[in-house]
């Protein structure tokens, strides 16, 4: 519990970060930036989990454990995604989404 800061502040922050992530994912043209937006979404989830845990259910640590697992799994996801992006870059010399257009309709 932090003096003067209520749970709602954290939830609003989490929601904002979540939708910034969704917006960035849908509008950005660069594959790496899209990946960063996906990370923002996961971080919003982490904020939510830790805030809920700390403020509402401080007797056990399920929310914080979940946040730790999300961080670890997000790292593996990024590792695979970046390696695929590199393999794509070797072929088309670009990581622009609009150049990634061989498969359509």
């Amino acid at each position: 519990m932090i003096e003067g800061i209520q749970l709602e502040f954290f939830l609003v922050l989490g929601t904002l970060v979540f939708f910034i992530g969704i917006y960035g994912f849908l509008t950005r043209k660069n594959l790496i930036t899209m990946l960063m937006s996906a990370e923002l979404i996961l971080n919003a989830v982490n904020i939510n989990f830790v805030a809920f845990n700390k403020y509402l259910y401080p007797e056990n640590l399920e929310g914080q454990f979940f946040a730790l697992f999300i961080i670890a799994i997000a790292a593996t996801e990024v590792a695979v995604a970046v390696s695929i992006i590199i393999s794509l870059y070797r072929k088309i010399k670009s990581i622009d989404v609009e150049k990634v257009n061989e498969l359509k309709y």
């Binding site: 996801e77 995604a81 695929i84």
Partner: peptide, 10 residues
């Protein structure tokens, strides 16, 4: 692969 991993992440 890129399309799959990005939509899976989202």
């Amino acid at each position: 692969g890129v399309k799959l991993i990005l939509s899976a992440a989202l």
